[in-house]
């Protein structure tokens, strides 16, 4: 259905009307008035880093490991190594050994953030949901060493993220909204944010879905 539609222009005739318009810069004035109109309306931008954007639930930030919530001493990861097989950039590695009772024990879990392309394949494939994508998008570091994460760091990161999510749920902060963090902390996830630090922002007027709480 539908068809081709010809869109083109015609050279305008040079009449008196056009001359007058040309003389008074009519089109330029129109453009100026549009800009002036928006100058008087409220800003639509967000004051980062004072205000922060809460990423949606599906957002694929830094990867982290989680533990079983009921048995905190036990890892969820079973060491099946499927995440390593599906990773397109080879950012993950697992070192396993046999434990005392014959079970597989994960000695080390290596995650190279500098190689990771944040595609979320590992999270998708993990059969036990031990890997999660956190909403942490502020990943800049001073050196390459800090971009390598081991099992301990990944578990800590996952734990912090879960805590932060709980705090946000308690405060009623939804995803894709703008929040304020006191004092201005650069990384939400690593900064050990406490409940009293998070503050719902006053209404920032916005025409698009980026509506703050």
């Amino acid at each position: 259905m539908g068809d081709y539609k010809i869109v083109t222009y015609k050279e305008e005739k040079k009449g008196l009307k056009k001359r007058v318009k040309q003389m008074f810069f009519w089109e330029i004035l129109q453009g100026m008035s549009l800009t002036f109109k928006y100058m008087l309306s409220k800003p639509i931008t967000m004051r980062y880093p004072e205000h922060k954007w809460v990423a949606p639930d599906r957002f694929r930030g830094q990867v982290a490991l989680v533990r079983d919530e009921k048995k905190m001493d036990q890892d969820l990861c079973v060491g099946c190594c499927l995440c390593i097989r599906v990773c397109p950039s080879g950012a993950l590695d697992i070192i396993t050994s046999m434990g005392k009772d014959g079970n597989k024990v994960i000695d080390e879990y290596v995650y190279d953030m500098s190689r990771c392309i944040y595609c979320g394949m590992c999270v998708e494939i993990c059969p036990v949901d031990a890997l999660i994508s956190t909403g942490n998008y502020e990943l800049a570091e001073d050196d390459m060493e800090s971009l390598m994460m081991n099992k301990e760091a990944l578990l800590k990161s996952g734990h912090r993220w879960c805590e932060l999510k709980k705090i946000m749920a308690k405060k009623g902060i939804k995803s894709q909204s703008v929040i304020r963090v006191k004092p201005a902390k650069w990384t939400l996830e690593r900064a050990n944010v406490r409940e009293e630090d998070l503050e719902v922002t006053p209404d920032i007027p916005n025409i698009y879905p980026k509506k703050p709480m």
């Binding site: 639509i44 990423a55 949606p56 599906r58 957002f59 694929r60 392309i117 944040y118 595609c119 979320g120 394949m121 994508s133 995803s175 894709q176 025409i207 698009y208 879905p209 980026k210």
Partner: peptide, 22 residues
């Protein structure tokens, strides 16, 4: 870019990425 921001927010909600959707 103002309008594009609205589109990227929608796609972010849908897929989890703003430009690299996977």
């Amino acid at each position: 870019f103002r309008e594009r921001e609205g589109i990227l927010d929608l796609l972010e909600k849908l897929s989890g990425g703003r430009m690299t959707f996977a």
